[in-house]
Design a protein around this nucleic acid. Structure first.
Length: 490
RNA sequence: GGUCCCAUCGUCUAGCGGUCAGGACGCUGGCCUCUCACGCCGGAAACCAGGGUUCGAUUCCCUGUGGGACCA
């Protein structure tokens, strides 16, 4: 048989997509993940983080985490820790960590050099005034100043002699550029407040400047980022050109949304402040910590992101895709338990006291059983009882015959035979011993479901279990009042 | 308003001039099963529109439409 045919046949059904090759990557790569510490990481960050990580793994090299905290307005002091935790959760193979707030002296130094090379000038025009000239493709008066004066003014900017907005260092680009957004964009600005949590400064580099300088200094060879940065890539090119540096290879993937979720950090923050969300890990949010709390495995996020890839198409990502990946990971290992939502207490007449031995996992008998003691009274889901009278198979126990309705409902023993239940097409449903069941709240994005569960669930704190016929859930807390479980997915 | 990207089943994705347009999720029919889970076997489901180029366009070009991004 032809070898490629053998390979074809032995290839697993569900393979992870192979990402397109990168240019000039044969000798290894240096890539980066560069988040703002403005909040915890969300799925949008995960895409950038995982994609870059995957390429570093593939080609070998270094993976730099660069904390981009050059804008004090967009720094949340708590975010440094959150970002670190989230990266740890994702399991990225970070090799270097750099804080931009440690590198301001470098930025000043290169800012001066850019002026010396004729690539930048200090502009003291009013914002409105400059904008008007820019749109008219006209030079502003500051553009013609000589280099010595610009250097001197830049120094004064650093020393705090200008007030906020009074002076800006602009990159000299091309006033004829068809895109006005490219014309003489700012590289440094004065900011007197808010204070930066990690340092003391009043002259701040803007993102395009610090990013270009750092990409070069850190030896970044390839950048995979969203296409919302295409304009920035073009702006940064001017800086590379002025310094005679070779820019990295860029790839810009499309915009990503997730159905029903806000991915904007500022909007999430506002929602939390307004009490709309419980916190950054509110399960209705698209943050990684929210996913972790619901019981989504980091590998599922990784796989989902790799499946999306680096396509330039704008997409609206569906939770279903992520859930499916997670289910494949979690189903083989999650222990099974009974959770009875909206329980109804039923006395079963005519049955012997006995113990039901239910497998913790149907595919792994060696994991053992949960032993449920039947003593006459059980709890059953209201929803299943409302379907009317008839035979019900209590899973792993025996059959019962339901008669009557509502408060008059009664049940009597109807044999042990599973075959009998099958023949009568009796539904097989979960149940609980009334005595040993404990309260359990299932938290879902649509609200809480009150119910009861097996006492054994108490030993599963922190792990994901499957509530049979209900779905997967992560056991979040085990309190004296009961168990809090977060619904993962069906 | 200016500039720039993008367009394949409901969703994600493969495709790089000639394919029965492939796969995954979801949906659905059946089998298996002491869960409505898992597994197995089937099914429905897509090339945004109109012009070119070409013997031949999902694929190349133009226009429109529809999404999106950046600057303001």
């Amino acid at each position: 048989m032809a070898p490629e045919l053998v390979e074809e046949m032995s290839r697993p059904r569900e393979q992870i997509r192979v990402l397109p090759a990168l240019e000039k990557a044969d000798k290894g790569v240096v890539m980066r993940f560069a988040p703002n510490p403005s909040g915890p990481l969300h799925l949008g960050h995960a895409r950038a983080a995982v994609l870059n990580d995957a390429y570093v793994q593939r080609y070998g090299g270094r993976y730099v985490l660069r904390i981009e905290d050059t804008d004090p307005k967009r720094v949340d002091p708590h975010a440094y820790d959150m970002v670190r935790e989230d990266i740890e959760w994702l399991g990225l193979a970070i090799s270097d960590v750099v804080y931009q707030s440690d590198r301001f002296d470098l930025y000043y130094q290169y800012g001066r050099e850019l002026i010396e090379r004729g690539g930048a000038y200090v502009c003291t025009c009013e914002n409105e005034q400059f904008r008007a000239m820019k749109l008219a493709r006209k030079e502003c008066p500051c553009r013609g100043r000589n280099i010595e004066d610009d250097l001197e003014m830049f120094e004064k900017m650093r020393e705090g002699e200008y007030s906020e907005g009074e002076a800006t260092l602009r990159v000299r680009t091309d006033l004829e550029h068809p895109d006005p957004a490219m014309r003489d964009y700012p590289a440094f600005r004065i900011l007197k407040s808010p204070p930066h949590p990690r340092m003391d400064a009043c002259l701040y580099p803007l993102m395009n400047f610090s990013v270009a300088v750092d990409d070069h200094l850190l030896g970044i060879t390839h950048v995979i980022r969203g296409k919302d940065h295409i304009a920035n890539t073009r702006r940064q090119r001017y800086i590379f050109d002025y310094f005679g540096w070779e820019p990295p290879e860029y790839r810009h993937y499309g915009r990503m949304g997730i159905e029903g979720v806000v991915l904007s950090t500022s909007q999430m923050r506002a929602g939390i402040a307004a009490g709309e969300y419980q916190g950054w890990d509110d399960i209705r949010l698209g943050t990684l910590r929210a996913m972790a709390r619901r019981g989504i495995a980091p590998e599922a996020v990784k796989e989902a992101v790799l499946d999306i890839g680096i396509g330039e198409t704008d997409i609206s990502f569906s939770w279903e895709n992520l859930f499916a990946r997670n289910k494949a990971l979690v189903d083989p290992i999650a222990n099974r338990y009974f959770f009875v939502p909206d329980p109804v207490r039923v006395k079963v007449e005519g049955a012997q006291e006995q113990v039901a031995h239910a497998l913790l996992h149907p595919a792994h008998p060696e994991k053992g059983t949960r032993d449920l003691l039947f003593q006459g009274e059980i709890l059953l889901p209201r929803e299943d009882l409302e379907k009317g009278s008839g035979m019900i198979r209590c899973k792993d126990l025996f059959n019962i015959e339901i008669s009557g309705e509502g408060e008059e409902l009664s049940a009597c023993f109807a044999g042990e035979s599973l075959a009998d239940a099958r023949a009568k097409k009796a539904p097989i449903i979960q149940w609980l011993p009334a005595k040993s069941a404990i309260p359990c709240t299932l938290v879902t994005p649509d609200g809480n479901r009150a119910g009861m569960c097996e006492h054994g669930v108490a030993r599963e704190k922190g792990s994901v279990v499957q509530f049979e016929r209900v779905g997967f859930a992560r056991i979040d807390a085990v309190n004296p009042e009961g168990i809090i479980a977060y619904f993962t997915h069906r």
